[in-house]
Write a protein that binds this DNA or RNA. Structure first.
Lengths: 204, 204
DNA sequence: TTAAAATGTAGACAGTGTCAACAGTTTTCT
DNA sequence: AGAAAACTGTTGACACTGTCTACATTTTAA
């Protein structure tokens, strides 16, 4: 778990993650990363071909974290006949929580114009995260969720729904304009797919 | 309708809109706008206190365009008993179409860190757009849509849903990862709220 | 007519990403 | 062991950026 900070590239990534959490996307400059890492301004380019590549690496870590926390949330939902639906709902909540807990990282992950998408480890981790969602949706469909629906289309729709809540809320747009809580909005959005009575039994 | 290009500020905004459509957010710099407008690099700052303010003005126009095209789409849905639901669905499609037709502008509208939100005409137009959505949702609730749900929470949920589809699709994320079409994904997401049989009768 | 406001120009400044030239250090190969 | 190569870092430069100040010109208002 502990990252190997003797690896210069890893040190840069960890520094960038800290700076990103602290100063947001705007503050994430190559030279500031170098300053915090205690190296000269040109050093980072020895490990990443460009700032866009370093950002892509950082964004890839974000997708890893996202997939992990969705997995963890789904796993700790107790079993039962309707558990695949609850697992999906748990993963949805974890997605939004990740976005709110680390808004800078979450925002960076979805700014393609700032990222070098060809950087190894970006598309890879992003696709892996979507594949996990796809698998959960498939299991939920076997348990009765929208059985007639194409799995990939359903996964895309659910992802969009949760992503929209996460994006708008973490930008402050939803809170300012609607008085409702994040929980209420997310559950309202999910209610179209996952029966309300199942969500009401949620432990949060 | 024709903008008054003899007004220097308006000329700058129109130039910025063109540049944004052409080069995306990254290419939208003060100096490039000045170059295209045929003025010196310092001139734009006589009309906008900062680049962030100019961007906010441009984003405000985006919200105006968005509200207009949603209104137009809703208005041209033929009347009938279920028409409020169809109007809502029409507005949802218009939202996504706007995002896809002008991805740079749409992206800018939801990048709070790049905008001076205190600029007059930004929050104003953004709030006006949400108010129109709120009104349509209220009418749809009177016509039977989720009558027990809090209107603001429902509007926030619907907005999130549509915004998520628009955002992820216009970034290329959904197309790459799911084989489904934009129409299919949006209708799948909406189906949780608006009965499928109503959408199937859609004219597109 | 005169004062003031609006509008534009030119230069400077600090900041940025990127590149090229150079210098140690470490690893690898023969 | 010795030579060659790769790795890692530094330094200085370049073009670009947003913003500020000082100065000019034009337009508007009193």
């Amino acid at each position: 778990m502990a990252s190997d900070l003797s690896d210069p590239a890893e040190h840069l990534v960890q520094t960038a993650l800290g700076l990103l959490a602290e100063s947001g996307i705007e503050g994430l400059s190559l030279r500031e990363i170098a300053r915090r890492a205690g190296v000269s301004h040109g050093a980072p380019l020895r490990h990443f071909p460009s700032l866009a590549a370093l950002r892509a690496e950082v964004a890839g870590r974000g997708f890893q974290l996202l997939a992990e926390s969705m997995d963890k949330a789904a796993a700790q939902v107790p079993g039962g006949s309707s558990s695949p639906l609850l697992r999906l709902a748990g993963a949805a909540h974890a997605y939004v929580e990740q976005a709110v807990a680390n808004p800078g990282l979450f925002a960076l992950m979805f700014r393609p114009e700032l990222l070098d998408r060809a950087h190894p480890g970006f598309a890879q981790h992003a696709d892996a995260a979507f594949d996990k969602l796809l698998h959960q949706v498939r299991v939920a469909q076997d348990a009765g969720l929208e059985p007639e629906c194409d799995t990939r289309a359903l996964a895309a729709a659910l992802w969009s729904l949760v992503h929209g809540v996460a994006t708008l809320w973490s930008q402050g747009a939803l809170g300012a304009v609607s008085g409702a809580s994040l929980e209420t909005i997310l559950d309202t959005a999910l209610a179209g797919f996952i029966p309300i009575h199942a969500l009401e039994g949620d432990d949060r």
